[in-house]
């Protein structure tokens, strides 16, 4: 464990908690893409299959449980909570996220580190996580204005993956044989997807104006 990875995990945890907090307190999911949340629940479900088989550390198991419970809770809130569901704008959240699942799965079948079920599911979750934010970014483009909590949510998600890239660089130089090209490239693609959002997020923060994303 290094500081970049710990900071990355904490940032990731913060992003999920910010979202849960928003939905739970103001009982609204306005501006939040259900599709992105469903993709994230699928990412965690397919990545943490080894939750009960491979014990790595208490921290690892605890964090996996938190991510699983929180991501599925968010999906439940938006789909089934009698008040929250009313604020879900399904006419705007129209990204065909199923079109992301299949290519990621096929790619995982072809490009992976080991052709085993667990490894293929793990690789699938990596590819899916890289593109899971797309429905949310499309929704932000559509609804143009975004409220602070949604902006913070996306910002924290992007920041967590950027910190992980620093973690991978650190581990590459400090641990012999630590090479995971698939993880690194997938993580880089994911961070680049956030790059343009970051640009506009910082612009709005610097000029102290409401975040406007160009159409």
């Amino acid at each position: 464990m290094n500081i970049f990875r710990l900071a990355g995990d904490m940032t990731h945890l913060a992003s999920v908690l910010v979202l849960l907090l928003k939905i739970h307190t103001i009982k609204s999911c306005a501006g939040i893409s259900l599709k992105t949340q469903e993709l994230y629940a699928l990412v965690f479900a397919t990545r943490y299959l080894d939750l009960f088989t491979d014990y790595i550390s208490l921290y690892n198991t605890l964090m996996k449980l938190i991510f699983l419970v929180s991501s599925f809770s968010i999906v439940w809130y938006i789909r089934h909570h009698k008040i929250v569901r009313r604020s879900y704008d399904k006419d705007q959240d129209t990204f065909r996220h199923y079109f992301l699942v299949l290519p990621c799965f096929l790619l995982a079948l072809v490009i992976n580190e080991k052709f085993t079920v667990k490894e293929i599911m793990w690789t699938f979750s990596l590819y899916l996580e890289a593109v899971a934010i797309l429905p949310q970014l499309v929704l932000l483009q559509r609804t143009r204005n975004i409220d602070n909590l949604t902006g913070q949510y996306v910002f924290l998600l992007g920041a967590y993956r950027s910190l992980y890239i620093l973690n991978w660089i650190y581990r590459y130089f400090t641990e012999p044989h630590y090479v995971h090209w698939i993880t690194w490239i997938s993580g880089l693609v994911q961070t680049l997807l956030y790059a343009d959002f970051f640009y506009y997020y910082f612009q709005s923060w610097k000029n102290n104006v409401k975040l406007e994303l160009p159409a």
């Binding site: 990731h12 080894d50 491979d54 991510f67 793990w122």
Partner: peptide, 10 residues
Amino acid sequence: EEQPQGHDEL
């Protein structure tokens, strides 16, 4: 004894 699973990250 199975070598530790390569993926120790979240």
